[in-house]
Design a protein around this nucleic acid. Structure first.
Lengths: 237, 237
DNA sequence: GATGGTTGGCGCAAAGTTGTTACAAACTCT
DNA sequence: AGAGTTTGTAACAACTTTGCGCCAACCATC
């Protein structure tokens, strides 16, 4: 269990396109070690087809390739209806400033200069994915709190990529705490907002539901902290 | 799994154009084994005419042919009013980089490098067809949700390729859920949108219709999930 | 106005959820 | 350390929600 909460569970997929199979394998090795699902491709001409079939979350693309260079391929990817939103990480040979600028202009998300450090490769991969995931979440109205993702529309909660089955009350409780993340919520407050204003319910009932919620969230349940004498709060990490 | 469903039912037809009859037959054999309808053609000069008569869902085209090369033929197909939307899968001899790029530029949908693996041939054929079918569905206003295809115009619903007979209310119910796929719909919401705003109908009636709809959809009915205390939603998988 | 399919409502059984209680454990303060 | 308070949790009974079969009303078609 590393740092980036969002990645732990749901394996993200990366497509690596480089005309040198050896380099592909090397990159693949390091990404797989970090839990990514990968596919490699040494023939850039098959890129569009393979990418559409594999549906990657990220494409790592070598700029310098025979037959079809990375820039051109990038342009092709960016006009493909299914692939245009897939972020692209460019690999550029040494210092080719022009190439990089062109890459950004054509919609690349980041670049890495060969030869590169493996740690940096993984770090950048994660960074790009974190950005795009956050953007996607924000757009779709989902709420995120560390490894917890809550979707009000589909009424689903994912914890570390796994679907967790919550009852309506538990869902609303978590929803409220995620909206007010980090801030303590008194039992009365929770009763008013999660249950409806007609609060003739025992305040101890809240404890019970918090307990059940913690149970269903498993390890992650520890993110719901008890503030003795006051109430509960959801915290990150 | 996912894409396969689209194929089960109606047999798709493939036209194979290669100047070598042996290769034609080989390809034909493998595609037929997988349930495709096929036709072969060794004389590229007859291509347009044959293609118009056969009305294939896909054309497999050899790039290198005497008399009339594949690229030129591709261009001719792409300007033919009846054939311009038929996807094309190119067969290229090993190292012919330029040819392939030109092929993409002229509207080819994918490539396969000779010699190729039979499994890959079939896989790509299916992938291309899945793509074009989805595109066609989108254009024609049909809705798709996993194995369910709903056509608002003809008022028909296909499940895994089989026609399912739904009543008007059931149809509208499914229609709405497919439009709002993945999102929970409350009973009230359903009543307002499926029935007309005159909501003096018991909300329990919704349950009844959902039940009947589930029944008629058979196994696929499980895609309609109950979100206890909230409503119903249609999910994929 | 008969007919056959469709629709909305009712009622019951099954399944799932919830509030309460009771008691143990943890914490606070003297 | 011990009394007093607060919290965690298991158990359970009451309650709510849902699935399903049934029936009467409806409606278009013949």
């Amino acid at each position: 269990m590393t740092d980036a909460s969002t990645f732990e569970s749901s394996k993200h997929s990366v497509l690596i396109i480089d005309d040198e199979p050896d380099l592909c394998e090397l990159i693949e090795f390091h990404l797989q070690k970090d839990g990514f699902r990968t596919a490699t491709l040494s023939n850039p001409l098959e890129a569009i087809g393979t990418a559409r079939d594999f549906c990657p979350d990220l494409i790592i693309l070598d700029v310098m390739m025979p037959e079809l260079d990375g820039l051109r391929l990038c342009s092709m990817l960016k006009v493909d209806s299914k692939l245009k939103d897939v972020p692209i990480l460019f690999l550029t040979a040494k210092c080719e400033p022009d190439e990089r600028v062109k890459g950004f202009e054509r919609g690349a998300d980041d670049y890495l200069t060969k030869p590169f450090d493996n740690r940096e490769l993984v770090a950048r991969t994660k960074a790009i994915l974190a950005r795009t995931i956050k953007r996607k979440l924000a757009i779709s109205g989902k709420l995120e709190a560390g490894p917890i993702i809550l979707d009000p529309e589909s009424h689903e909660v994912m914890v570390s990529g796994k679907l967790v089955d919550l009852t309506h009350t538990e869902f609303r409780l978590l929803h409220l705490m995620m909206e007010r993340i980090g801030r303590v919520q008194s039992r009365e407050n929770l009763l008013v907002n999660v249950w409806n204003y007609d609060t003739d319910i025992e305040t101890r009932t809240v404890d019970n539901h918090v307990g059940r919620l913690r149970g269903k969230l498993g390890e992650v349940g520890d993110l719901i902290k008890t503030v003795r004498g006051v109430g509960y709060k959801l915290v990150l990490d």
